[in-house]
Amino acid sequence: MVDQNYSTNQTEKDLFYKEKKKEEMKHQVVTFAMMIIFTLIAFGIVMADVSKMFTIPIIIVLAIVQVGFQFFYFMHMSNEGHTWPVTMIFSGIFAAFLTVLALTTIVWWG
């Protein structure tokens, strides 16, 4: 009796995780499609040869969104148990932002 209970629980659990993995896979395929679309838009805008002031901010925003998708879905940062990875990556991004800011503004003194 106990054994039977255990095994039904186990099958239900397995089914639950199988379903969950499938769901996750769907999100990842959608992520991939979005990444391809963002890339096409970025290349498209550059090829359309519109104003530089318009193009550069848009392609940078597209890159940031695309990377967000990659981190949260391809690298599973949206799953549970990822508090530390999120903390570490965002600390890295914060330091990265300061680094790029410092290096790009320092040339103005030259």
């Binding site: 530390w84 990875p85 570490m88 990556i89 600390s91 890295g92 991004i93 330091a95 990265a96 932002f97 680094t99 790029v100 800011l101 410092a102 290096l103 790009t104 320092i106 040339v107």
Partner: peptide, 26 residues
């Protein structure tokens, strides 16, 4: 391994940022 590797990736982000910053400056 999982935690350590994410820590490493945080460091890699900064490493690449310094190269991107250098490139943008030059």
């Amino acid at each position: 391994k999982f935690l350590g590797f994410w820590f490493f990736l945080g460091g890699e982000t900064v490493l690449f940022a310094s190269l991107f910053g250098t490139y943008l400056a030059l």
